[in-house]
């Protein structure tokens, strides 16, 4: 359980220490990539809790979602339509759903533990 947290902390520290700054106009892509990554992450946690976790699905979904989101944003910029909003919407809805499922599963586990 602690290893993912460690990973998160290490990632943040590396990001802050390396002093990388991307140009302002690309921050849109990065933000949507973060959203996609978060979505995949929570999807993975949910799958893990539901015991349907598949490594290949998780890893491929992680990179594929990021690329898809970024390319969607790119396409949107070139078409003049705010297409990244579609990605934001989709990922946002899925994020909430995943978190809701995780919460329910955890609640159910906790209550069943309490009954014991």
């Amino acid at each position: 359980m602690w290893l993912p947290f460690m990973g998160l902390v290490i990632g943040v520290i590396i990001g802050l220490l390396t002093d990388i700054r991307i140009p302002e106009e690309y921050s849109n892509y990065l933000s949507i990539a973060i959203l996609a990554a978060l979505d995949t992450m929570f999807g993975g946690i949910r799958a893990q809790l539901q015991n349907i976790y598949d490594e290949k699905v998780f890893v491929s979904g992680f990179f594929f979602n990021i690329l898809l989101a970024a390319s969607l944003a790119f396409l949107g910029v070139h078409l003049g339509v705010d297409l990244y909003l579609a990605a934001v919407f989709a990922f946002g809805v899925r994020l909430f759903q995943n978190i809701a499922v995780i919460r329910r599963i955890l609640l159910a586990k906790w209550s069943s533990n309490g009954e014991k």
């Binding site: 290893l3 990973g7 700054r21 993975g44």
Partner: peptide
Amino acid sequence: SQKNFYFALTAAIIGFMVAIQFRTV
């Protein structure tokens, strides 16, 4: 442990991206 490792790697990448985005914005 392999599962945990993948989760950690993903979390690290997310953290990295978040940090960069934070610095940029």
